[in-house]
């Protein structure tokens, strides 16, 4: 039950894009067409659901203070937290590479559809942000997995919705200075207000 709650929270209330501004770069750059937005959104869900639990294991059994106790009592005071950033980004880059290779082998059509987005995900803030928030909030592994999935779904919803609006926006008469990024910021703000409606929703 807690897990479902976390998925709902991650997708709607604590939405990666509207509440924490994470993944804004790709959110703004890849939201010109719905079809590409769908591809990127799917890839983000996929990678977040894998990397957050992976990094949870890393944090729990290697990095946390006293996490190395399983190696012997001598290691009980070892604290490797300062390696957190490097290890997390390495895991993410490695997982993205792995996912890319697997997808290429198993489903060439999906690989073609995702194209350049898969490697780009390694430097998407929402992926690293997901792992860092997971550490901050002391999740268990089940909660961490559902948090990763929920955040991915949140990003997916946000980017597809924005892409749909921007496709319609092509036919509007926007002032010159506002074209492109400017008007997109306003739309994102308005969408953020809409997502505020989910505050306080629990199961």
């Amino acid at each position: 039950m807690e897990a479902i709650n976390i998925i709902i929270r991650g997708a709607f209330i604590d939405n990666m894009v509207f509440a924490y501004f994470l993944g804004m770069c790709s959110f703004l750059a890849v939201s010109k067409k719905v079809s590409t937005a769908l591809g990127l959104g799917a890839a983000v869900i996929f990678v977040l659901t894998i990397t957050v639990p992976m990094n949870w294991l890393l944090q729990e059994y290697v990095l946390r203070e006293g996490a190395l106790t399983w190696l012997g009592a001598d290691f009980a005071t070892v604290d490797l937290t300062f390696l957190q950033f490097i290890m997390f980004i390495a895991i993410i880059a490695a997982m993205v590479q792995l996912v890319e290779m697997v997808v290429e082998k198993v489903s060439p059509s999906l690989y073609g559809a995702l194209g350049i987005f898969l490697p780009l995900i390694a430097v998407n803030c929402s992926i690293l942000g997901g792992s860092l928030f997971m550490v901050q909030r002391d999740y268990t592994i089940i909660e961490a997995t559902s948090f990763g999935f929920g955040s991915g779904v949140g990003f997916f919803l946000a980017i597809v919705a924005l892409a749909a609006i921007r496709e319609k926006l092509k036919y509007s008469n926007v002032p010159d200075g506002l074209k492109g990024l400017g008007i997109t910021m306003f739309i994102t703000g308005l969408m953020g207000i809409a997502f505020k409606a989910f505050i306080g929703m629990t199961l």
Binding site: F18, G177, M185, G189, I193, K196
Partner: peptide, 22 residues
């Protein structure tokens, strides 16, 4: 967070209009 989007949107608008960037 909404305020941040709006303020940045306005700054972008002003700056781009001033520079004539479209």
């Amino acid at each position: 967070s909404i305020g941040a989007f709006m303020v940045l949107g306005i700054i972008i608008w002003v700056q781009r209009t001033k520079n004539g960037y479209v």
